[in-house]
């Protein structure tokens, strides 16, 4: 019961933060030097056209009024029109977002599973050669940026040893499944087009792996540290003294309290993941949301940029809430004594 109260509180607070985010983004987009309409149309466009676009974009109105106009549209699901493609941004994004969500979901999965299991292994064999190797690998994982991993992986696993495809989302010969959710994997599975689903999965493994390396390494380090730390706690010593089997201690009594720290910091790793997706999609020429964002940025497509940042803000906030729910599940203190936490 109290867990739901906690989660609802957390969600309400997040909505407040997102409201703040919308203001922040709007302010930033308005202190840009230069006239967005002029930038959109280029230096040679006639003055009357610029004037008309300014009116269309409500640039002639005061900033507060413009914010509320924009927010009103936003709540209706209208993100405005791309200045570049002259299409509704909502349409653009609904096309590109599922592709990115596939990568992000897979890499969050890699991050948690690889990270936690490596950390567990490292703690289980602490101070042996295996622990040493894992610790060095984790350090390298942390200091190597995702786009460098992307380049190295592409070089090794798709050129040197061609196991994985180099670029794109699906092989040219394969027809994508009809659109239901927009995710080729889910749609492929739903429509029985397993070939397309598998091919898509095959395409996103390298980018997802590249994106997850830093977070996985961080999680491995944290898991190891907190397991080694907790292994010396009295409650684990007591469990050993009571003759509870070693395996049960490691997999249950020691692991659960030790997961709280690594999962808490995963919130930060997911922030890094969402940012790094911009570079990694570029390396793999992946037609995803982040690449759409980069294109928008390079062309100063104002409303598209605002929308991309806003959606990432939403995604990040949702990820944070999910992580908090996991923590609440793991840690009774968080879910039951949570009144002062929000």
């Amino acid at each position: 019961m109290s867990m739901w109260v906690y989660i609802i509180k957390r969600i309400i607070y997040s909505i407040g933060v997102l409201f703040g985010v919308s203001i922040l983004i709007f302010i930033i987009s308005n202190i840009v030097p230069g006239d967005p309409a002029r930038i959109a149309l280029g230096p040679r466009a006639p003055d009357w056209a610029v004037k008309r676009l300014r009116k269309e974009m409500n640039l002639d109105k005061p900033i507060v009024e413009r914010y509320f106009l924009w927010l009103g549209n936003l709540l209706k699901g209208d993100l405005g029109e791309s200045l570049r493609s002259r299409r509704p941004i909502t349409k653009d994004i609904s096309e590109y977002l599922p592709a990115s969500l596939e990568i992000i979901a897979l890499s969050a999965f890699f991050m948690a599973t690889i990270g936690i299991n490596l950390g567990r292994l490292s703690a289980r064999f602490s101070d042996t050669w295996l622990d040493g190797v894992i610790r060095i690998v984790s350090y390298i994982g942390i200091v190597t940026p995702a786009f460098v991993w992307a380049i190295l992986f592409a070089l090794i696993f798709s050129y040197l040893i061609p196991i994985f495809p180099t670029t794109g989302r699906i092989s040219p010969g394969i027809t994508p499944p009809p659109r239901i959710t927009g995710s080729y994997i889910i749609d492929g599975l739903l429509t029985g087009n397993f070939k397309a689903a598998f091919d898509t999965l095959w395409h996103i493994i390298l980018p997802a792996l590249a994106l997850s390396m830093g977070g996985a390494a961080q999680a491995a380090r944290m898991t190891r540290a907190s397991m080694v730390d907790n292994a010396e706690k009295d409650y684990i010593l007591a469990a050993k003294a009571y003759g509870i089997p070693y395996k049960l201690i490691y997999k249950k009594l020691l692991l659960k309290p030790s997961l709280i720290a690594p999962i808490s910091i995963m919130a930060l790793d997911i922030a890094a993941l969402l940012g790094n997706a911009f570079l990694v999609e570029l390396v793999f020429l992946y037609p995803g949301f982040s690449r759409y964002g980069v294109e928008a940025m390079l062309h100063k497509d104002l409303f598209a940029i605002i929308s991309v940042v806003l959606i990432i803000g939403v995604a990040y906030t949702v990820a944070n809430v999910v992580i908090d729910i996991i923590i609440a599940y793991l840690d009774p203190r968080a879910r039951m004594g949570a009144e002062q936490n929000v």
Binding site: L237, L253, P257, P332
Partner: peptide, 13 residues
């Protein structure tokens, strides 16, 4: 143990 807080696993009933 000396410290009952440390002797009980915090995340299990």
């Amino acid at each position: 143990f000396q410290d009952p807080t440390a002797a009980l696993n915090p995340v299990f009933t």
